[in-house]
Design a protein around this nucleic acid. Structure first.
Lengths: 190, 190
DNA sequence: TTGCGTTATGAACGGTGATTCACTATTCAA
DNA sequence: TTGAATAGTGAATCACCGTTCATAACGCAA
């Protein structure tokens, strides 16, 4: 059943994001998923593979969005940046556990053991950098900026903010949040 | 001897930042410090306590800087923000191990077990928020911003960027880096 | 209903490494 | 010089889970 795999991932996400990957117990994940501990290993090679798949899910979604944006020709870099921000925020709003997880297990993708995850993250970074580069070239963004650094700064800032929002359970108005981050990000680039 | 405690912390920093907290072995820390494994426990309650003390060291340093800045009256919020950025960058430049560690064990302060560390982090955030608030009030920063959110965004952005820089060992020109982050941050606020 | 392949189970195993502790070395006041 | 207090040691202990696997339950075609 793929339905069962889905349940495991759901449960793992919950436990990982709440306890952190290292402290999370397979037994608890299984319990929440409503299955026996051994069953987990029918669907995943090991604990790490669950985390990997969770990461790939989320990063590939952003990557897809970026590919689509790349194909649109009559859109300014600034507009594209706004689109990306919107996409990330929406994703986080829909699934705050995931944001918290990605942030707290940051080390897994910056020095991580998974080539696959790294590839996706790298791809997202690269595509974003390309957009910013375009913006610098055409004069829309500040000429003195380094596109790569700006990308890391933006992604990091957005991520932290979203994670912080999900940690204190304040009800966030997603729309106003989007406007605000867009402002901080786009003005910073100009 | 406090000198021995210092040695343990030095060694722990090295091992933690290189291997990550969870994979780091006490035995290796002890070996590098040139002492027996048991000796570590004469100076620290347990492994976690070493990490805690390392964190407190670094965050309290930034906090101190902020206290000093708070006392200066004839300085605009923008200037103060630039000062903080400079301070953080300098700290990271001086001690990249620590930066890498704080980033990779991020979860320890966002959902961490240590109240003491959380207090320092909270204090740093609060003081920064206050500065940004002042800037919004006096019209130097954009009125539509939420000071708290802006703080988190900035700190997150800076942090990620610095971490990225310390992870790939690219030789960074600290000064130009400072200028760039200041630009991204301050313009975002305006 | 039976039997076989598939799927699920959770107790038991095993590796790991933090922590302990019985013992040794050092220091220093008397 | 001595011996008691202090500091240091590292092998042995112990708790902790990830993982395995012998067994059970299930689903279904014959």
């Amino acid at each position: 059943m793929d339905e069962k795999k889905e349940k495991i991932m759901q449960a793992a996400l919950q436990v990982f994001s709440f306890e952190g990957y290292h402290k999370a117990k397979i037994s608890k994940i299984a319990e929440i998923a409503g299955i026996g501990a051994g069953t987990v290993y029918l669907y995943f090679k090991n604990k790490e593979a669950i985390l990997e798949e969770l990461f790939i899910n989320s990063w590939s979604r952003i990557d897809e969005k970026l590919v689509k944006l790349d194909e649109i020709k009559n859109m300014t870099p600034e507009q594209k940046i706004r689109e990306i921000i919107g996409e990330i925020i929406e994703m986080v709003a829909q699934n705050s556990d995931l944001a918290r997880l990605i942030l707290s297990e940051y080390s897994f993708w910056s020095a991580g053991p998974s080539t696959k995850v790294n590839d996706y993250v790298g791809s997202v970074m690269e595509r974003t950098t390309k957009i910013i580069s375009k913006g610098i070239e055409c004069g829309e963004f500040n000429k003195s900026l380094n596109a790569k650094d700006a990308t890391v700064f933006l992604v990091g800032g957005i991520w932290h903010l979203m994670a912080a929002k999900t940690i204190d359970f304040t009800n966030v108005d997603v729309l106003s949040m989007t406007k605000e981050i867009e402002h901080l990000a786009v003005n910073g680039l100009k």
